[in-house]
Amino acid sequence: MKKIKIFSMKSPYREAFHISGYVFGGGEKSVAIVGAMRGDEVQQQFVCSQLVRILGGLERDGMLADGKEILVIPSANHFSMNIGKRFWPMDNTDINRMFPGYDQGETTQRIASAIFERIKDYKSGIQLASYHFAGDFILHVRVIKTAIDISGGAQMFGLPYVYIKQPEPFDTVMLNYNWQIWDTAAYSIYAGTTDTIDKNAAKQTWQAIIRFLSESGIVRKEAAPGFKSKILYDSDFTTVSAPCAGIFYQLKHPGGDVRRSETIAKILDPYDGSVLSEIASPRDGIIFFSHSKPLIMEKTVAFWVI
């Protein structure tokens, strides 16, 4: 294991900001793994830190394939994480809206550029991602649909679901999309939570990544078998929005089976506690995403059901 410096910058009054990477093995640039790019992505950082520990052990035990290099970047934004912010501390910009970056541009463009320059030549890329709504997901691999079909590679993680998402305009400035444009097979893994550590989901995530490395012939460790992933497309999701605002009293959670018309949440009056609305599942299926905060605004996405 070799620790490398990917980006450094002085700050007006804080210690210098460094982005570090951990390199395992050597030779063909096989897999790059990127963790927290936002300051609240604690689950993502936790998964990456465990991967560094596990890969270090595998390398010491001689279980990495010859001629293959793995790079792990656990954190790209600890300046925000250390002060409890999600985006860049000075201007509130999102590093993951700056790719492929620009080395002569603004601060977060420079950070994105330095990261991208270091990771763009890897054959596969794995990003531990979070979503722009507050909520919890079933563990899954997400692939932005571009000209290349990498759904087979996404199934090698052995997670229950692979979601092939049509790109939206804002995707074009995110890491996953740009990785693919530069010919890296890019996978985003949604590890259940963001600003809290879910130990079970985190363990399943790092086991899935080790399984992918094993299936790809990059590590020689035999991984426990995973799921035969089901491929999902945008049309497989039914969105359930909150019909009114209030206290969100959740009855069903991601991964839970639901029947059509079954009550999956209630919205309660915050003054008298009465039930303002019962949210019913629109179909038989499984909860894929749920709103995770105790209060909810009207028209906010409460669930995705598959």
Binding site: C244, A245, G246, P270, Y271, L295, E298, K299
Partner: peptide, 10 residues
């Protein structure tokens, strides 16, 4: 118009 959680509308 959309309801906010406690006694207010956007």
């Amino acid at each position: 118009s959309a309801g906010l959680p406690v006694d207010e509308k956007l």
